[in-house]
């Protein structure tokens, strides 16, 4: 790593701090402005005021707001995140530790599907611009793009879990197997391999198919468009014409020269799309009862569990920041013109 790249990375990391800080601060206050509170959401409307106050006191919600705020910030800095206010009041770090791997296990194959299908069909459409195959790909991508995730998930569930029951309906693993499953990293696929538990591996993988395809497909539309537009522009650039004039085969021009240069704008947008990916993950997790961070977030927002929501969103923000940092590094590796 060159020293200039290192300096760039340090600056980037330092810049993420105010970004995340602003975000979590906003969430902190928005949660408290929203109607409803964690006490009522748990105890129901008919509890006495004394009972509510007692709980409030125990959870530290009676302290001045600024103290709660700095307390929360300190929890973020120490990566402790505090404890949830509802449903067992577990340490949030433990909750996320269990659920974050579930979300990552879902999103990685989804991204792979998106990137593979989206980029390849986008490039293929660009290569065959204005031919029937181009129109079909574009039409299909718009259609997929406009189907809501939960609806697509539901259709898949009806077809592949109910009508032709070849795939499990929801969850991460068969309940029966789960009771004896030894989880080390909470990435079930990895754990199953580590413990040599083949039936569990099989179950984990089959459970992954529908949710990851749903999430992957949902994001594919954007990628097809993005790749196609950028490829068309790239294919008209001088160096492609020059390559053609040098007798370089068309396939090589499209899939090596043009596509590699197209990765640069695509990657930038991929970084920006990451937030959308997380939003998609939330919906997918809800549809497939996937015990990931997304579902946790939705549940806890409903319960107005301030600390859990704050911490989860904080972690999301850190994640997005981390990914965009990663993008910048890949970017620098692909494009020699970029030297930080």
């Amino acid at each position: 790593m060159s020293s200039s790249l290192r300096r760039f990375l340090i600056t980037r990391i330092l810049l993420t701090i105010p970004m995340v800080l602003i975000l979590v601060t906003m969430i902190f206050f928005i949660m408290r402005v929203l109607p409803g509170d964690p006490i009522r959401s748990q105890l129901g409307p008919r509890v006495s005021e004394e009972q509510a106050d007692a709980l409030r006191e125990r959870l530290g919600l009676n302290r001045p707001l600024y103290i709660q705020y700095f307390d929360f910030l300190w929890d973020m800095v120490t990566l402790d995140f505090g404890t949830a206010l509802t449903q067992g009041e577990r340490p949030i770090r433990d909750e996320l530790g269990e659920r974050l791997p579930a979300t990552i296990e879902l999103t990685i194959p989804a991204i792979a599907i998106t990137a593979l299908i989206g980029i390849l069909s986008g490039a293929f459409a660009a290569k065959n611009r204005k031919k029937p195959i181009d129109y079909s790909i574009r039409l299909l991508s718009i259609a997929i793009y406009s189907i809501p995730i939960f609806f697509m998930g539901l259709i898949f569930q009806i077809i592949f879990a109910v009508r032709i029951p070849i795939l499990p309906l929801s969850g991460r693993m068969d309940t029966l197997l789960l009771t004896q499953f030894e989880s080390i990293t909470n990435f079930y696929v990895i754990d199953a391999i580590l413990t040599g538990n083949w039936p569990a591996l099989r179950s984990a993988l089959t459970h992954l198919i529908m949710p990851s395809i749903t999430l992957g497909l949902a994001l594919t539309g954007v990628f097809v468009r993005l790749t196609r537009v950028n490829m068309i522009e790239m294919l008209q650039s001088d160096f492609i014409t020059a390559g053609r004039a040098r007798g370089i085969p068309e396939r090589r021009l499209v899939y090596k020269h043009a596509l590699r240069n197209t990765f640069i704008p695509i990657l930038t947008l991929l970084g920006l799309q990451f937030a959308i990916l997380l939003a998609g993950a939330v919906l997918t997790e809800t549809t497939f009862s996937w015990p990931g961070v997304g579902r946790y977030l939705v549940d806890r927002i409903e319960l107005r569990d301030y600390t859990a929501v704050q911490a989860t969103i904080g972690v999301f923000a850190l994640f997005v920041a981390l990914i965009s940092l990663l993008m910048d590094i890949i970017y620098a590796l692909i494009d020699p013109r970029i030297r930080y």
Partner: peptide, 23 residues
């Protein structure tokens, strides 16, 4: 394809854009 490159080659107006920037 064989003809292009082996028999005839071409140089363009804009030297900034006629080479692949990532090669």
């Amino acid at each position: 394809r064989d003809f292009r490159g082996r028999k005839v080659s071409m140089i363009f107006q804009d030297p900034m854009t006629s080479l692949n920037p990532t090669q």
